[in-house]
Design a protein around this nucleic acid. Structure first.
Lengths: 241, 241
DNA sequence: TAGTGGTCTAGACCACAAA
DNA sequence: TTGTGGTCTAGACCACTAG
């Protein structure tokens, strides 16, 4: 039934999630772990792994001794804050048809803060990429990304930066983006931001300030992002420890 | 070496985390999974489980074929957004000596929004609890919690609400809080908020609007919280899917 | 080539819920 | 009592890294 690669767990996870989204468990009850294991021809451990991850995503919940159930409120989440990877995908998940415009690509001297965050030597420069994401000509997200200059070649071709930033890192820099460490910061729109996002000066915004790390746990990206709250709302699941 | 209950995985996790925090792996390298399994007298599966969770918390990272390493940037996180459970604990983690003041406890008719979020019948009321958290007389967090009236008895004793809200639910309502579904919303401080938190009118704030669910996945709490950004900053780890 | 983490299995026993 | 999810084991094989 299932092949290797992608892993059996991933396939099982995708299979179960699809059944849930297709509303194939009308009563909200998901088959027992043993049944799923038999049905898919894998061990119960593999099924449990898949179910655990889906539980973490808020797709389902489990009650010991009782069973596994579809989690209706969790299904309402369009994009979970923890796993935002490309803003194009976020906007699509919200039902938008997004466009991304590269406003500017330049080489600059980093500020001390960014030099520290990216562990740069004193003489190193950064490539700064400013982008604006819009849906239907309405601006929604403004981002300013900074990549150590040494990671890319000397050539700057604006077209290379039209794709999501993790893909830029992949293609231009041969760096796989592994995770972000993100600060969530409230800001009041100044004149510049207000003009870019077409909002009132002084309007409250969420912003991210984040450092991206590669597989070797080295910082390879510093990013600042601003979101129009009226068009994009972030949601997350919070659990105790 | 280890006893049952708490689970071997939890004990292994705590043990490894403690060693990391005590800086016992000076070179940043953590022993191999087999070594840890032998040392603690448990199976490798148990160790892997513990390590996976610590990786999720950002405490360590793994490189296939190479080894497991302490994650220095992750250790800087004082409180991860996803696992905030009590604001007292958050403030303590920031090095504050927090005080919590119950401003008001009252029974009210819920707004339609809250009635929907809590699945209340038309005639049900809610208990509204307003609290202010301060550190050293400086207000930091303002929260407004709402609990379905039917869950608590008719008696309202302000002293019962001095503890964290999950404990109120536990003790007064016999409800175990399982998880929150949270919206993260930017707001501009109005006069009321500005006075409470002693900030400028119009200052940008982060707020949470969240619904808390019990073990049966029923909504048992609706909460709104406001944070002074200059005193409390939220941080999180974001990973791709 | 040796050692590490990544995946998977089959099976055991437990705690808990529902009938 | 039966069936469910929760925990744990011992061992297998694979993919990858590094010497």
């Amino acid at each position: 039934m299932l092949k290797r690669s992608p892993s059996l767990t991933d396939q099982a996870k995708a299979h179960i999630k699809e059944q849930i989204l297709n509303n194939e468990f009308a009563d909200g009850r998901i088959p027992s772990e043993s049944d799923l294991a038999n049905e898919l021809g894998v061990s119960r451990t593999t099924i449990r792994d898949a179910l655990s991850r889906l539980e973490g995503e808020g797709v389902l919940f489990r009650k010991q001794g009782s069973g596994t159930y579809v989690n209706e409120p969790g299904l309402q989440i369009k994009s979970r804050l923890e796993e935002i990877w490309s803003y194009e995908a976020v906007l699509e998940a919200h039902g938008y048809a997004p466009s991304a415009k590269v406003l500017e690509v330049s080489t600059e001297k980093p500020t001390p803060e960014i030099r520290r965050a990216l562990s740069l030597r004193a003489d190193e420069s950064v490539i700064v990429i400013k982008k604006l994401f819009a849906e239907n000509d309405k601006p929604v997200i403004y981002t300013k990304n900074q990549i150590p200059g040494r990671l890319c070649g000397p050539s700057i071709n604006v077209d290379d930066f039209r794709v999501p930033i993790y893909q830029v890192l992949n293609d231009l820099c041969q760096q796989r983006l592994n995770y972000y460490l993100s600060d969530i910061i409230p800001v009041s729109a100044d004149k510049h931001l207000a003009k870019l996002l077409e909002i009132r000066v002084g309007a409250a915004l969420i912003s991210f300030e984040e450092t991206g790390y590669n597989d070797e746990n080295e910082p390879v990206l510093w990013a600042q992002s601003f979101f129009r709250d009226d068009l994009l709302r972030f949601r997350m699941i919070r659990r105790g420890v």
